[in-house]
């Protein structure tokens, strides 16, 4: 599955916010959004990833950007995961229909039935500005990758 490429409009998607409300492609407009796709709540690599990305949040705020973490876990699991990690990164659930939004963006890993390890940066215009798909779900993109994505919006 190929990740959505820069310049593409984000297709219609529906994810769930932590409060159960819908998060759609329309919510991506007006500011830069970094979508961090991770395989599973409570898996070791994901634990490291979100704690490291938490350090970037002040930098994102300066650039009028926001970060969300996306997985196919149910919101309750994501919230428990977030609390365990001590992070504030907002969680978006792609639980039901499972993985639909992730598939639409090319960030689903079919062999394991889970979200792939991917980053998608969407510009304020709602179009994809940059994307990255890890070569395997176990490979964790460093903060330099997030910065690369933010630079693509600024550029």
């Amino acid at each position: 599955m190929a990740i959505i490429t820069a310049g593409s409009a984000v297709p219609p998607i529906t994810l769930k916010n932590e409060d159960g409300s819908d998060f759609t492609q329309e919510d991506l407009k007006g500011r830069t959004t970094v979508l961090v796709f991770y395989p599973f709540a409570f898996s070791p690599v994901c634990t490291d990833q979100l704690q490291v990305y938490e350090e970037l949040l002040p930098e994102l705020e300066q650039q009028n950007a926001v970060m969300y973490a996306v997985s196919t876990d149910a919101s309750f699991s994501q919230i428990a995961f977030k609390e365990k990690l001590g992070v504030t990164i907002g969680q978006l659930s792609d639980f039901e229909p499972k993985g639909d939004a992730s598939r639409a963006l090319g960030a689903y890993f079919e062999p394991a039935g889970m979200t792939n390890r991917a980053l998608v940066v969407v510009g304020p215009d709602g179009a994809v500005a940059w994307s990255h798909l890890a070569s395997s779900p176990g490979e964790l993109p460093g903060v330099d990758k997030v910065r690369e994505g933010l630079a693509a919006v600024a550029g």
Binding site: V45, D48, Q49, Q51, V52, E55, L56, L140, P141, G142, V143, D144
Partner: peptide, 20 residues
């Protein structure tokens, strides 16, 4: 560390390449 590519601990930098 983050600039070097550390994505968790321990992160070992050897010849400019980060390993975990």
């Amino acid at each position: 560390g983050l600039r070097a590519g550390a994505v968790g601990t321990p992160a070992i930098v050897l010849d400019g390449v980060v390993e975990h």
